[in-house]
Amino acid sequence: MNLIQEIEQELGKKVPPPVRVGDTVQVHYLIREGDKERVQLFVGLVIGVQGRGIAKTVIVRRIVQGEGVERTFPLHSPRVRDITVTRRGTVRRAKLYYLRDRVGKGTRVGELLGDKAKREKQRDLETRAAMGGDSDAAPTADA
């Protein structure tokens, strides 16, 4: 492991939220209203994962009032408190950009079911346990 990777492990969250392409997720995002802070939920479908290490981000897409909305969240950002998976999807590609051109029934993604889903769920729980109370360990710059 090189120096940069070591630094990224120290700075980032110990275990990033276990999220995959095709998952339906709830992003717990910290927003600032005046001088108050609160957690906002952004619910949608993960249509892409980009970057590695501390720079890893996910693109989450949802339909709001008939209009597609996509937001990119850095997994290691202190503002992203948590990302919980509500539904595992079965998809065959890494980027679901084709969903942008679809409406209605065409935007559905199959659900991961059966033994595989159970194994995945078990693994998720283990990852969550490893995360522990880590969600507050936010990497910050001294500046």
């Binding site: 090189n2 120096l3 940069i4 630094i7 990224e8 700075l11 910290l30 600032r32 290490g53 501390i54 720079a55 850095p74 290691h76 950002s77 202190p78 503002r79 936010a138 990497p139 910050t140 710059a141 500046a143």
Partner: peptide, 19 residues
């Protein structure tokens, strides 16, 4: 020079840095 990475500042904004 060891390489580049990124930090998050107090507001959660990404700061690109060279180590």
């Amino acid at each position: 020079k060891r390489g580049m990475t990124q930090l998050f500042d107090g507001d959660g904004a990404v700061v690109p840095v060279t180590v």
